[in-house]
Design a protein around this nucleic acid. Structure first.
Lengths: 201, 201
DNA sequence: GTTGTATACTTAACAGTGTAAAGTTAAAAT
DNA sequence: ATTTTAACTTTACACTGTTAAGTATACAAC
C-alpha cells in the first residue's frame, strides 16, 4: 500500500512545515505576538488547518519545545563521549547548556519559562525528553560522586544545584541584556566554576 | 485650595484602585489572561478609563512590578540592620530573596520574567527601584570582600553570581512545581550555601 | 445666575485574536 | 457510477487592546 504511506508522509510533511513556521515566528516575534493566522499565512494554508495537526496554540508551543529539548539533549550528549575527568565534563556541560540558551534565547525561554506557564506541570514527565535531559545531568553528577570528587553524596540535590546555577545565569543574561554585566564569557565561567567549587569535596 | 488637593487625592485613589485590581488579577490569572475589560469590571469603571491613568497594559504591568520591587527591597533591607557577620547577612539575604519569590510567585515572574519581555531593557535603569535592589546586593558583597571573606575581589561579578543562583532556584521551583525536587527548604539552603562556599576565599 | 471651559468618564468602533462548526472539494473504495 | 472518507476552507462567535468621539458634571468668570 504505497499510496497510504505516501499520504502519511505528506501529512507528516505538512505537520513539520507548520512546526518550522511556528518556531520561526515564535522565536522572532514571541509566542504572544504570533497568531494562528500568521502561521497559516506563512505556510499558505487556512488558519483552521493547523487545528487538524495540533490541538491548539499551546499544543503547537509544546511540540516546538519538545524539539528544542531534543536539540539541547543532542548538544549535551556530544560532550559525554570525550570521557576525561567527570568534573571537567560537568563543567563543559554547564557551559554548553548556557551557550545553548544564549544561542537560541527565545527557544530557551519558550521551553523553560513560557511553556510551564501554559502547560502546567507538564514537560518533565516520565519518559519525556525533558526528563532525559535531567537524566543526563544526573548521570554526570553520579559519576563525579562515585569518584568522590564532590562533597554531597546526594545526586539529586547536587544536580538540582547545578541546574539552578546555569538556569539562573542563562535567564538573567537573556532577560536583562542591558544590565551592566561583567564580561559575559567570564561571568558564565565564574558561575559554573563557583558552583562546582562549592560542590567539591 | 483644598478642593484641588482633594481632587488630586481622589485621582490618586483611583490609580491605586486600578493597581490593586490589576495586581490581583495578574497574580491569580496570569498577565496574558487578564484583559483591560476584566480589570475595568473589577473596579466598576469603563475599560477606557484605565487609559487615563496608564499608557497601556504594559505600563500597568510596569507599575505593578515597581511595587513588587519596592516590597522586595523593603524585605531585604530589614535584614541589613542586624549587622553581624556580613557573610551571614549575605546568606540570609539570599534566603529572603528566594522566599520572597516563592511567597509571591506570580509577582516574581511578572517582575523578573514577564516584564522584561514586554518592556525591553527597562526595569534596571539608573535610579530605578530595580537598581536599588541590586545596589543592596552590591553593598553586602562589598562588605564581605572588604573583610576578605570572599575569594574574588570583583564586587560586580560576585554579586552577579549570587543573583544567578537565587534567581535560578527561585524560578525553577516556581515553574516546575511537579519536578521531584529534594526537600525544598534544604535545597534552597544548599544552593545558597554552595554558592557562598564557592565564592569564599 | 447664566455661560464657558476644563475634567472625568463612557460609548462606539476598529482591527485583530483563538477556535468551533459547518461547508466544500477531490480522491479512494465499493 | 455511487458512496464514503480525508483534507482543507469558509464562516462565525466571543473576545482582545486601544483610539476617537461623545457626554455629563463641576468649576471659573462674568
Amino acid at each position: 500500500m504505497g499510496i497510504i504511506e505516501r499520504r502519511a508522509r505528506e501529512k507528516e510533511q505538512l505537520r513539520q512545515q507548520i512546526l518550522v513556521a511556528a518556531r520561526e515566528l515564535f522565536v522572532n516575534e514571541g509566542y504572544e505576538n504570533v497568531s494562528m493566522r500568521k502561521i497559516a499565512n506563512k505556510i499558505e494554508y487556512s488558519p483552521t488547518t493547523i487545528y487538524l495537526y495540533f490541538k491548539d496554540k499551546a499544543d503547537l508551543l509544546d511540540s516546538v519545545c519538545k524539539e528544542t529539548l531534543l536539540n539541547l539533549l543532542n548538544t549535551l550528549e556530544q560532550l559525554k563521549k570525550d570521557n576525561s575527568d567527570p568534573v571537567e565534563t560537568l563543567r563543559k556541560s554547564g557551559r554548553a547548556y548556557v551557550e545553548f540558551g544564549l544561542k537560541y534565547p527565545q527557544d530557551y525561554k519558550l521551553t523553560f519559562v513560557t511553556r510551564p506557564q501554559f502547560q502546567k506541570g507538564l514537560g518533565l514527565d516520565e519518559g519525556s525528553v525533558g526528563e532525559k535531559v535531567f537524566d543526563y545531568l544526573r548521570a554526570m553528577v553520579s559519576e563525579c560522586i562515585q569518584q568522590k570528587k564532590l562533597r554531597l553524596a546526594d545526586v539529586e540535590t547536587t544536580g538540582q544545584v547545578m541546574w539552578s546555577a546555569v538556569h539562573g545565569i542563562t535567564l538573567l543574561l537573556i532577560d536583562f541584556p542591558d544590565f551592566p554585566w561583567t564580561e559575559k564569557d567570564k561571568l558564565i565561567d565564574t558561575v559554573i566554576h563557583t558552583t562546582i567549587k562549592g560542590l567539591k569535596a
